[in-house]
Design a protein around this nucleic acid. Structure first.
Length: 287
DNA sequence: CCCACGACCTGTGGGC
DNA sequence: TGCCCACAGGTCGTGG
């Protein structure tokens, strides 16, 4: 799935075409994604304007000029594509190039400008919902979320508290969205490698000095990945179709058997399954 | 609290 | 070429 940098890239790509523009047509081509869509999903969105498109953790939040917020999560394989009309047969009646992947095109938004935004999701782990804006923070999806990793609230003191007394490795804990919200498998592996911390070491036993380096490692990697337009593995592309290129900068992810890229380290990247997920790490420099 | 595991759903890539 | 298995960026739940 898109992790924070990919979701942020999507947000940046969609904002120019969705913000401040009325949705003139909304189509739900199936009744559910991961969860059933609200029964009146189409009706509630048609004619609405997304005033602001924001991101919280891995969620996209479309703030509507109505009482609800359009909440969107991309799951593992969700993506958006923007298409422009190829022509206008009559005023307000546009036509478009054929959909390249109609089987997985589940949701379509069309704006008054004629721009079409299509949500594709082969695995359908993604979801959309309309949530009352005033009480959004109380919603189960949001109430327990930890701080944004790029915010000032995410610092060494926060990690120290969160890790205190914990026997699980930092890999597992950093994937817990209640501790910090937005990291996923790739960027956790990458950040731990940069900070030279073992993914398996009991988190409570990591020295404070190490924890202090972990925080900037996480912030740096996320910022760099966002600047690179995210990572393109299988199906992630920016909304304009351009591919993110941060995957070329991975030091560990999917690099088992290849040399560790940390300065002065001659180790070889290993892969182990931890809590059901692949963990990529350097056994030599990550202690 | 910890862990291991399975579930959700579909596609892809590697090995044979 | 075809078949089968492992595995995939994320959550969520269960049971020991």
């Amino acid at each position: 799935m898109p992790e924070l940098p990919e979701v942020e890239t999507v947000r940046g790509g969609l904002a120019p075409v969705l913000e401040g523009v009325r949705l003139t047509r909304v189509e739900a081509r199936r009744p559910d994604l991961r969860f059933p869509l609200p029964v009146n999903f189409v009706q509630l969105l048609t004619g609405a304007t997304i005033v602001k498109l924001e991101r919280r953790a891995k969620y996209l939040l479309g703030r509507l000029d109505r009482e609800d917020t359009l909440v969107m999560h991309l799951g593992m394989s969700g993506r958006f594509e923007i298409s422009r009309p190829e022509g206008e047969t009559r005023p307000g009646l546009f036509h478009y190039a054929p959909d390249p992947d109609p089987k997985h095109a589940h949701i379509v938004f069309e704006t008054e400008a004629g721009t079409r935004v299509t949500y594709y999701d082969p695995r359908r782990f993604g979801y959309m919902a309309l949530v009352n804006t005033a009480t959004l923070d109380l919603h189960p999806w949001f109430s327990g979320l930890g701080p944004e990793p790029l915010s000032d609230a995410f610092d060494a003191a926060h990690l120290k508290t969160a890790f205190a007394g914990r026997k699980q490795g930092p890999k597992t804990l950093l994937l817990d969205q209640r501790i910090v919200a937005g990291l996923g498998n790739i960027y956790v592996c990458e950040a731990l490698n940069r900070a030279r911390i073992s993914p398996f070491r009991p988190a409570g036993a990591i020295p404070a000095a190490k924890l202090a380096t972990l925080v900037p490692a996480i912030k740096d990697i996320l910022a760099e990945a966002i600047a690179a337009g995210g990572s393109t593995l299988r199906d992630f592309a920016q909304t304009d179709g351009a591919l993110g290129y941060f995957q070329h900068s991975f030091r560990t992810y999917d690099r088992q058997g290849q040399p560790c890229r940390n300065l002065g380290c001659s180790g070889v990247i290993d892969r182990e399954v931890q809590a059901g997920r692949s963990t990529f790490f350097c056994p030599v420099c990550q202690k």
